[in-house]
Amino acid sequence: MTALLSATGLVKSFHGMRAVDHVDMEIPEGRVTGIIGPNGAGKTTLVHLLTGHLMAEAGRIEFDGADITALPAYARVRRNLCRTFQIVDIFTRLSVFQNVQIARITRHGRNWRFFMPAAGEAAGEVEVALKEVGLWELRHRQADQLSHGQQRRLDLAVTLATGPRLCFLDEPTSGVSPHERDQMLELIKLLAKAHRTTFVVIEHDMEVVFGLCEWITVMHRGKILAEGKPDAIRDNRAVREVYLGEEV
């Protein structure tokens, strides 16, 4: 497998503290990767760098054969690299339908159209996307009126509607009930197949990670501590030490 995304020597510091310290990473297409590590290990910062939410101080990022190091976030999304955030981030005053619709409109590059009504734009695609996540019945609801679990699913639907080849999910199950969590996991597996999207999941919840991922990268103090198949990681001594006292 050739790498879909490869990063070399990424550095980012805050107030003199290295949050991400010379990280190299390769993500091949089609493999679900998990990034784990204790609080403050630099997982989220790393994803911020890879997706363009923050700009790296040093290092280079290649995606799909092109150098994207200097590209702003929206340009990376257009090249099919997308993400969700730890805290649900949706368009609160728009309807559920419009939330997904704006992602499709942007995908088609139709944001500048100012004369014809948006109502029917990409309606078929939006219908498919909302049915996938089970929110079609709620399409007229204003997004901030949904339950937290529903908002999580909408967030995912919006992200996938941008048509990503590679998609980072930052703690996709945080704050949802155990039942909703299992639903969410099934959904992610399903979507990964249906959309041929490569997922990278950042998680705290070990059950989620070992249930979902085929490959795991462990971060600690801004560096990559270990990577490998789930079983190997489970047995890795250094990883167990870092997690000692934390829930494994």
Binding site: Y74, V77, R83, D89, F91, R107
Partner: peptide, 9 residues
């Protein structure tokens, strides 16, 4: 932020 991450400049 979300708008930027659906690809809007």
């Amino acid at each position: 932020v979300r708008a930027e991450f659906v690809g809007i400049p």
